[in-house]
Amino acid sequence: MEVRTIKVFTTVDNINLHTQVVDMSMTYGQQFGPTYLDGADVTKIKPHNSHEGKTFYVLPNDDTLRVEAFEYYHTTDPSFLGRYMSALNHTKKWKYPQVNGLTSIKWADNNCYLATALLTLQQIELKFNPPALQDAYYRARAGEAANFCALILAYCNKTVGELGDVRETMSYLFQHANLDSCKRVLNVVCKTCGQQQTTLKGVEAVMYMGTLSYEQFKKGVQIPCTCGKQATKYLVQQESPFVMMSAPPAQYELKHGTFTCASEYTGNYQCGHYKHITSKETLYCIDGALLTKSSEYKGPITDVFYKENSYTTTIK
């Protein structure tokens, strides 16, 4: 009895394709271990004539594949690729409408935090270190965002349907971005203890939790000093293409032309909904596939993004 075979390709990165001759009487799992086709788990399936010449994702289970996976995804987590594939199996079914010149995501599976993050990423200057993220990001900007969303979920250790947080998501993504040249110098002034300067680099240099107003941050924000008295913390120097200011959701007025974009969060910790506000020729609110415009805006804002380049204080 002759062994019926077909020729397929296996890959971990969709760049390096490895030619395989597979036995049609055995499952993919018996031949390769966990195997995925377009995100779908085909591990328990036997090869079919229609699979001839198709590319299958496999887990990096030998040295060659491990090197290829690390170079593309910059992670050695053995569960990463499987999590990416199972997320992709959902995100490829989502709709990605162009809204006001940006790629958004039609609401499904509690994905409003991903839509808000995706919209924000198209408006701030950011370059990702893992080629996987950078490639998928370019495709997302062009309207094909399924891979990018699935990668975000995998890097953030999230599953489809789980509630997510924009600030946490951005923080994970910033860790995989090139923020080497970003720098922030802060000064804390206390009447009792004097003053202390701190220099922050990388992710810490672009994120701040405690106030939404970048102007206020430049002037000074009140913080408790270690001595128990009130101290003032203010920005001395900022070198970065953008800054992200966050605070627990509270009524906040966004003035046209003073910011790049913002995240609105309605609801409580267990259950809520994100919308995205962007400042173009007027203010726009993007909620999944829905767009509304207004000249002014007041609502429960939790993150505001500002364009920056270089700032030095005039406070002496």
Rank of each mutant, 00 (worst) to 15 (best):
residue 2 E to T: 12
residue 3 V to I: 13
residue 6 I to D: 10
residue 7 K to T: 12
residue 8 V to R: 06
residue 12 V to W: 10
residue 14 N to G: 13
residue 15 I to S: 11
residue 24 M to R: 13
residue 26 M to D: 06
residue 28 Y to C: 13
residue 30 Q to I: 09
residue 34 P to G: 11
residue 39 G to Q: 09
residue 41 D to C: 10
residue 42 V to G: 03
residue 42 V to E: 02
residue 48 H to F: 12
residue 49 N to I: 12
residue 58 V to T: 11
residue 59 L to K: 11
residue 59 L to I: 13
residue 60 P to Y: 07
residue 63 D to K: 08
residue 64 T to W: 10
residue 66 R to G: 10
residue 66 R to P: 08
residue 67 V to Y: 09
residue 69 A to Y: 15
residue 71 E to I: 11
residue 72 Y to W: 10
residue 73 Y to S: 06
residue 73 Y to W: 05
residue 74 H to W: 00
residue 75 T to L: 09
residue 76 T to L: 13
residue 78 P to C: 13
residue 82 G to S: 13
residue 83 R to V: 06
residue 85 M to R: 09
residue 85 M to K: 12
residue 87 A to I: 06
residue 88 L to S: 04
residue 88 L to I: 02
residue 90 H to N: 09
residue 90 H to T: 12
residue 92 K to Q: 12
residue 92 K to E: 06
residue 93 K to M: 14
residue 93 K to Q: 14
residue 95 K to P: 07
residue 95 K to G: 09
residue 99 V to Y: 10
residue 99 V to C: 08
residue 102 L to Q: 01
residue 109 D to F: 04
residue 111 N to Q: 05
residue 115 A to I: 01
residue 120 T to D: 04
residue 121 L to M: 09
residue 124 I to M: 08
residue 124 I to S: 03
residue 127 K to L: 09
residue 134 Q to S: 11
residue 138 Y to S: 14
residue 143 G to F: 02
residue 145 A to Y: 02
residue 147 N to C: 11
residue 148 F to D: 02
residue 148 F to R: 03
residue 150 A to D: 06
residue 150 A to T: 03
residue 156 C to K: 01
residue 163 L to N: 02
residue 168 E to T: 07
residue 169 T to S: 08
residue 171 S to Q: 13
residue 172 Y to I: 15
residue 174 F to Q: 02
residue 175 Q to A: 12
residue 178 N to L: 07
residue 179 L to E: 01
residue 181 S to K: 12
residue 181 S to F: 10
residue 182 C to A: 09
residue 184 R to P: 02
residue 184 R to V: 09
residue 186 L to M: 14
residue 188 V to I: 10
residue 189 V to T: 11
residue 189 V to C: 15
residue 190 C to E: 04
residue 192 T to Y: 10
residue 195 Q to R: 09
residue 196 Q to D: 07
residue 197 Q to E: 14
residue 198 T to H: 12
residue 200 L to K: 11
residue 201 K to F: 15
residue 202 G to A: 07
residue 205 A to D: 02
residue 205 A to M: 03
residue 212 L to G: 02
residue 215 E to S: 08
residue 216 Q to M: 08
residue 216 Q to V: 04
residue 217 F to M: 07
residue 220 G to N: 02
residue 221 V to K: 01
residue 221 V to C: 02
residue 221 V to D: 02
residue 223 I to S: 13
residue 234 Y to P: 01
residue 235 L to C: 05
residue 236 V to L: 08
residue 237 Q to V: 10
residue 238 Q to K: 03
residue 241 P to L: 02
residue 242 F to Q: 05
residue 243 V to K: 04
residue 243 V to G: 02
residue 243 V to Y: 02
residue 244 M to A: 02
residue 245 M to H: 01
residue 247 A to W: 01
residue 247 A to R: 02
residue 248 P to S: 07
residue 248 P to R: 07
residue 249 P to I: 02
residue 251 Q to C: 10
residue 252 Y to I: 10
residue 252 Y to V: 09
residue 252 Y to S: 08
residue 253 E to S: 09
residue 254 L to R: 07
residue 254 L to N: 03
residue 256 H to M: 13
residue 258 T to W: 00
residue 261 C to I: 11
residue 264 E to K: 00
residue 265 Y to D: 09
residue 267 G to Q: 05
residue 267 G to Y: 08
residue 268 N to D: 14
residue 268 N to K: 04
residue 269 Y to I: 11
residue 272 G to T: 02
residue 274 Y to T: 06
residue 275 K to P: 02
residue 276 H to C: 09
residue 277 I to W: 14
residue 280 K to E: 04
residue 281 E to G: 03
residue 281 E to R: 03
residue 283 L to R: 01
residue 288 G to M: 11
residue 289 A to G: 07
residue 291 L to Y: 15
residue 291 L to E: 12
residue 294 S to M: 15
residue 295 S to D: 15
residue 296 E to C: 13
residue 298 K to Q: 14
residue 299 G to P: 06
residue 303 D to A: 02
residue 303 D to V: 02
residue 303 D to Q: 05
residue 304 V to R: 07
residue 305 F to Q: 03
residue 306 Y to K: 13
residue 306 Y to G: 01
residue 308 E to S: 08
residue 309 N to F: 03
residue 310 S to C: 08
